[in-house]
Simulated scan of single mutants.
Amino acid sequence: MSGGRMQAVEGEALRGAHFRYFDFVMAAFVTILLLSNVLGAGKRAEIDLPLIGLWPFGAGILFFPLSYVLGDVLTEVYGYARARRCIWAGFVATLFMAAMSWVVVALPPASDWPGQGAYESVFGQVPRIVFASVVAFWLGEFANSYVLARMKLATEGRHLWMRTIGSTIVGQGLDSLVFYPLAFYGAPGWPVEAMLWVMVSQFALKVSWEVLLTPVTYAVVGFLKRREGVDVYDSGTDFSPFRAAV
């Protein structure tokens, strides 16, 4: 598809169509997902906020919510089927990363290499975190995409802000409820009280991120719709998550 006048089309009518920017959005989506699992998910950070005091949070909050913003963009611009394809791509890529992490940590280090202990402390926990992350990600992202696509039909394409925030509340709610108990229950340095507090605070921060980034979402969605020349509605879409065809 190419730029020009936007036209409303059903997702099924675009089966097999080529888009100029879809591959780039998909690559950004998968990249953010992988980096959030490697760099951010396992660290519990803490800042001292005025009037509130110490506020613990998972470091992944700095960029993981961007995957939900991109998920919104993918569903809104390209439709549920292509968003579903990206979710599966991210799912498989994360599993592959987890397998690589396990193999690399398990390899016997050279006798004169001093970094094995530090390497294990950083990447040794990745398999459990990634398992929790992919389960939570799978549930949350599909819920997010499904709710946004259904709300677009119900609102006839109006009120994008309501659709992105509403779908994020559902998707991030599922993500947080599943991820933290699976990843950190019983883990050293993660007492239950801290885990629950971080879970609640993460959910609030993620939704807040979505609200703050709403102008960015509008700008990106508007740009892509104009350049791709379509506005996709999923009125005839098969919403089963167990497909990858577009």
Rank of each mutant, 00 (worst) to 15 (best):
R84T: 05
L66N: 02
A245L: 01
A244Y: 12
K43A: 11
P241S: 08
Q116C: 00
A41M: 10
L148A: 07
G236W: 03
P191N: 09
I129C: 00
A136D: 11
A8P: 06
C86H: 05
V122F: 13
V25G: 06
A204T: 15
F63I: 13
F223I: 04
G3C: 01
V77D: 07
V134K: 04
P181C: 08
V198C: 00
E156F: 02
M195S: 09
M195C: 02
A93V: 04
G222K: 07
E120K: 10
V246S: 08
E141I: 01
G186V: 02
H159F: 15
Y119W: 15
F29G: 06
R85C: 00
P241E: 11
H18E: 15
Y218D: 07
I52E: 04
I87Q: 03
S2N: 12
R85K: 15
D234S: 12
R150M: 07
L49E: 09
D238E: 13
A149Y: 08
F64R: 04
L182F: 14
A93E: 11
G157K: 12
W113F: 10
Y180A: 08
W190M: 11
G171T: 05
W102I: 01
W197I: 05
R44N: 11
L33Q: 14
F19L: 04
L153Y: 07
V105M: 02
V147C: 10
K225Y: 04
R15E: 14
Q172K: 08
Y218W: 15
M1E: 07
A149W: 05
A13R: 15
A83E: 05
A132H: 10
R44S: 07
E10D: 15
N144M: 12
G173V: 03
S111N: 13
G189D: 14
W102T: 11
F179H: 10
F22C: 02
A183H: 11
D231W: 03
R84G: 03
R20C: 00
A110S: 12
L39M: 14
T31G: 13
S133H: 07
P241L: 02
K43T: 15
V9G: 03
A59E: 13
M26H: 12
G4S: 13
Q116M: 02
A194D: 15
F91N: 12
V221Q: 12
A27R: 06
G229S: 06
T237L: 03
W138H: 14
T217W: 05
F19I: 09
V200S: 07
S201C: 00
K43L: 12
V232D: 09
L212C: 15
G157Y: 11
S121F: 04
P50R: 08
P241F: 05
Y185Q: 09
L107P: 01
C86W: 03
V207A: 03
G117F: 01
V170C: 11
S67F: 01
A118C: 00
Q172M: 03
K43I: 14
V25Q: 08
L70S: 06
L51Y: 14
W197A: 09
I32P: 01
L213F: 15
A118I: 03
T75G: 09
I169L: 15
L49N: 08
Y218N: 10
A93N: 11
S201R: 12
R150E: 05
S133F: 11
